[in-house]
Design a protein around this nucleic acid. Structure first.
Lengths: 194, 194
DNA sequence: CCATCTTCCGCACGATCGTTCGTTCCGTCA
DNA sequence: TGACGGAACGAACGATCGTGCGGAAGATGG
């Protein structure tokens, strides 16, 4: 990895952290530059536009999410154990610094603003929903979940629970956010069980 | 109502609509002024700062939400019917132009930025959760819901469902968003029923 | 070791941000 | 009718936005 790619990665790590706090639009090139102690133009050279920067930040966050949440879940035993691993990883990565939440807040930010960023967010979310639904489906074929249960509905409901968690945790700073969300997932799984 | 208060109300209506699309931070005084065909300074005179404008927009949205969602629910018969009225009104006001969603997107925007706006959002959300929990409680005392059900947990779960709805509707433009969310509420109520 | 290519910088641009100031307009009441 | 107060205006401010350009370092490959 050349020097350019290396600093670019450093910049993206900081940018992702800032965007997690101030949003993708609140992420500004000037403030990002001073944060990583570079000149605006020096930093700008790595990305040809602000939109390109936003797209790369999104890609960075996505890779981090897949690595720390999706992959560990896929490594767990099929069925309910896999779903629970997913949830636990998801909760953990949101409690810590890592921003699985970036894609959530970015979604709220861009849901009415057409463009490549929005399109990417839609694709990412569709991918995530597909993954969750697929995990649920293997639970059905393992005989753990009711065969007539709706995998897409489950994915949708689970995402709602996670959104509720982000809200309770980040805005309300509710210490019971984790346990509340876990209980909600329990209810979801109870309804799906055979 | 004097002339000043009248134009202020006009401005706030437009401001709330813009903030629903671009967010409270994306709401800019210059663009707002040109939208209502006023000068920047003429408009600015009504609010002594941008933060004050944001607070008034929030108040405007809150009043509109209480009027079109909360009050009709309280007018419905106690218990499950009241909860369902709340949900239906909430869904309807989010499908149309009215922004019960503003407080949602504002929450995602300000969840990491301390200040009066964030504090207000926290108060508003607490009030809403209290209202929902109270509606659920009357359902318990009416004998429709299990006495050992947790009203706060129900409020939390219901809010998660609504967040999922906003996401599916606004970002994904999912035409099944409404029916999915209704089914999620059905499940919530099934679990709470006696 | 030198030529070349990348990386980064300083500087500047036009635009827009929130905000202030002084002035004009107009309705209200004496 | 004339004075007064609120409402709206135009112009301008310092700051910051995203974005270009030309040149100075520094790494890289022959």
């Amino acid at each position: 990895m050349g020097k350019g790619e290396l600093t670019k990665q450093t910049v993206l790590a900081t940018a992702t952290e800032i965007a997690g706090r101030l949003g993708l639009a609140g992420l500004t090139i000037g403030s990002l530059a001073s944060q990583v102690e570079m000149s605006k133009s020096g930093l700008f050279g790595h990305f040809r536009s602000k939109e390109a920067l936003q797209m790369e930040v999104l890609a960075y966050a996505r890779e981090s999410f897949v690595e720390t949440v999706i992959h560990p879940a896929l490594a767990a035993p099929r069925g309910e154990r896999r779903v629970r691993t997913l949830v636990e990883r998801w909760l953990a990565c949101s409690l810590g610094r890592e921003p699985g939440c970036l894609m959530v807040s970015a979604a709220a930010e861009f849901d009415d603003q057409p463009g490549p960023v929005r399109d990417q967010l839609v694709r990412d979310h569709r991918d995530l929903m597909d993954s969750v639904a697929q995990m649920f489906r293997t639970g059905i074929s393992e005989g753990e979940f009711r065969p007539d249960a709706d995998p897409e509905q489950f994915a949708h409901d689970l995402y709602g629970v996670m959104l509720g968690f982000f809200h309770a945790h980040r805005l309300m700073k509710d210490p019971a956010a984790t346990s509340r969300s876990r209980r909600a997932v329990d209810a979801l799984l109870d309804n799906a069980r055979i």
